[in-house]
Write a protein that binds this DNA or RNA. Structure first.
Lengths: 209, 209, 209, 209
DNA sequence: TATGAATGAGTATTCATTCAT
DNA sequence: TATGAATGAATACTCATTCAT
């Protein structure tokens, strides 16, 4: 176990080019995801990953400098697919009524979070470098861009100036509510109802000033 | 290194009764806090705790079954002191105007979070059993009681029925906003302004239905 | 296998104080010596040292940061005992005739080298940091002091100024000859005769200018 | 990683005959030399050699049975070029005055050592099989032949019988002095002066009996 | 009770070597 | 012949835990 006080290397060593390599790298990523979901981050070690992936330990180090880089790559793939899903929705619903579009948008985000809830729970609450991962930064930047776009739209439609702290509150509230509903659902609360209420509140907030 | 697939033992072995014992246990807790803040959960191990605490490794195991129990005890102490601080505020400000009281209440919570932000960041985002810790459950229950009380108050004052999903949104938004402001402050956003807006919005939602 | 591009840590972690510790540390040192002599530096690894020493691998790392430090400690002990042997000789023979004293001195050095020839061969010709070890520096400094003292003596006795390059030649020739005789003896050459000739030559150079 | 307790295979697998092969083998040798000089023997491994040489790891094993053979081949090439240089000097200066010829000879040897000092330092003090390499044996035999020739010359010129132990001392002293001057030069000592003194001493020794 | 030396299973990582393409 | 992905035995090092003193 090597001490890692130095900045952790999160980058993949070499991009797989041949088909054989792609298969190996993908098996490693999938195995890591499986271990994370089933046993948590503490159980993720390179030997176990190799065993579950059905590749040799040498191959793991052929492509990744350490387990942190595997996790980072996994997170990155997760991000990329989620972003793609998000952008598809935005394009599809660009012409709708504002309130309906908002509800649609929240549903999309909620479904993304729901789909990946198990791996997300581990990534967020167990991976120590989660907040410093490029993927996370990228995600935050991306959501910020969407929020700005949404605010701009409301300003165009209703001539209303949205205060930065309002934007901040809406973003924070949206993110944490979606996570909370997906990761820690309460039996007394209907996700449907919360999403509906959330959507309404946001629209009111943006329109009503 | 023994695998821990079995449910983790989070309880302290014996409550220190003699003064000497209290000193030892306290040194262990403080040392753990220091290591968590300075180096993170991955660096927390019983030998290091013993060294930093200035006690023997034998003594650590005399009082705790393992490092998880140390962290749980630390979290519990943090919770107890925070709850005490919260209740003091509630009692002090019970007679104020509703909006002013809410702002006061948020300030109190924010200051608590701010005071412990470094250790909180590690506990929340690195300790894998954080969500399952009794302290966390206790905190959630406690905050829920406060929210119910607040809602009841508003209902009494204004004869307004607060929907459960609104309550849910308010709780979630409040918690995540306070954490976000404290742990990941943005240079472009004034905490003061956000808290003001948050307070106003909560009161509106509680009063305005 | 950790990369060691950083300056190697050659210092023992903690000096053994209790008797039990002394036994452990000594077993580690002796085991290392045995492995070096029988199999060479390439076969020296901490797991093997632990096995041969009859202690756990954990104990090895309790006292030494790595195998380099074990070797350095071993070299240091070797040096200390050799220096002691050297100084004993010097004190014993200080009143002798110059030529006889010189011969005596060479015999002493030769016997020291001969006694430790197997371990010396490995230390010098296989240990990559041999030249940078404190022991080596200390030995060179010590031998230099002796040479200076010898030169001073000859100057006092015979009023002769010894050139620095002559001193350099004498030191180098003496060291390499003793090593050569001990480590790589030729069947055609009598060590006795070489030492006699060496002694005579040194005295001539010191006296004759 | 296979243990090598069996006698090490130092021979090249096949002599490169085609031009393409020659280039490959040469790249491997040069890469090894570079790694040895820059990082030392511990850093020399076949994968790294292949990378630095710009050839595939498969090609390395096509020509060499292992890294030891690469080093042995490198040492052999070094030896061959050095011997060539030596013989050129001997032929060039065969008619000179004895003392001048000796000085010339020492200068030649010193320059050879100086030219290759970095690689020599590693080969001598780090490569465990250095003393058992054919190259080393060959070098020793070659230098012995030269010494014999020199002694014979002095005997012819001055009718003096040189004792074998004198020959031994002169050889040893010369070799170690040249290495010492080149590999571990002292700021207080002029190499020029030492070589001059060495030359004078040797000639005196051979002539003066 | 307190101590801390000792243990050893567990985990990270390397590198010589093979072999399918 | 050349390539380089894959292998896995070997090795470095950690840390939870025990137990004799």
């Amino acid at each position: 176990m090597m001490k890692k006080d130095n900045p952790i290397d999160l980058a993949i060593k070499k991009q797989p080019k041949q088909n054989r390599s792609k298969v190996t790298v993908d098996a490693i990523i999938q195995a890591s995801a499986q271990i994370l979901v089933k046993q948590g981050y503490h159980a993720l070690n390179t030997n176990e990953v190799a065993k579950v992936a059905g590749v040799s330990i040498g191959s793991v180090y052929e492509y990744f400098p350490g387990k942190e880089a595997i996790v980072a790559t996994l997170a990155n793939e997760l991000l990329d697919s989620s972003l793609k899903q998000m952008h598809d929705t935005i394009e599809t619903n660009s012409e709708e009524d504002f309130e309906i579009a908002m509800r649609h948008w929240l549903d999309t985000l909620y479904n993304i979070v729901l789909t990946h809830k198990h791996i997300l729970e581990v990534l967020i609450f167990q991976v120590p470098f989660w907040l410093k991962m490029p993927s996370t930064e990228k995600l935050k930047a991306e959501l910020f861009k969407v929020a700005i776009a949404g605010a701009a739209k409301s300003q165009t439609l209703y001539q209303i100036q949205v205060k930065p702290e309002t934007l901040y509150l809406i973003s924070t509230m949206t993110g944490s509510t979606l996570l909370s509903l997906a990761l820690d659902p309460s039996p007394r609360i209907s996700s449907e109802a919360v999403l509906q209420e959330l959507s309404k509140r946001i629209v009111d907030w943006l329109i009503g000033g």
